[in-house]
Design a protein around this nucleic acid. Structure first.
Lengths: 85, 85
DNA sequence: CCGATATTTAGATAAATTCCTAAATATCTA
DNA sequence: TAGATATTTAGGAATTTATCTAAATATCGG
């Protein structure tokens, strides 16, 4: 089930911060990387895990690849958390 | 912030299953362990991480230690997830 | 086509995580 | 108090994760 990847993805603070950034607006991989003291390959790796977890979309526009939130898994997460409320 | 421990705790499927069990009823460490093909020390370790994340309470009653859900962190999680909804 | 820019992929390493066995601790009961 | 039961703590091995540098891929502009 895809929730497993989502929970794994959420366990890292860098990835949660990336999601927070994307909540504000869609961003390119480079723009995202500029918010961290970490190399671009490392951020690229985190983005790939978020994509694997179906928490972000990626779309190439020319030289850039834009990342945006994919909210479908968040709905599943919401249902999961509500059970404990 | 305690959310960090909570997200870490949730990243493991065994720990999520423990939480699901405790949703039904409070259970002793031994009862919980009976639901897994894993040694009791391993389950004990998972329980300790859940406690560190403030997702469960533990209370000794005689020889047994009962575990139960602590829902306060789940409320924070709910708020966090809702932001992405 | 070439050089520059944006991003990912590959490969390596250090740190963190999961799980085990053995030993320690706490409680109960005879 | 001694033995049995419940649970945790300690220590170690195997796996996974996070990060880096170097190299590869894709696109753009001249």
């Amino acid at each position: 089930m895809s929730m497993n990847y989502a929970f794994k993805a959420l366990s890292d603070p860098t990835r949660r911060k990336i999601l927070d950034l994307l909540r504000e607006k869609d961003m390119t991989a480079g723009e995202i990387a500029d918010h961290f003291q970490m190399t671009k390959p490392s951020i690229s790796h985190h983005l790939s895990l978020l994509k694997q977890a179906q928490m972000v979309y990626d779309e190439r526009k020319g030289q850039n690849i834009y990342y945006s939130l994919n909210t479908t898994v968040f709905q599943d997460l919401l249902k999961w958390v509500i059970q404990f409320h």
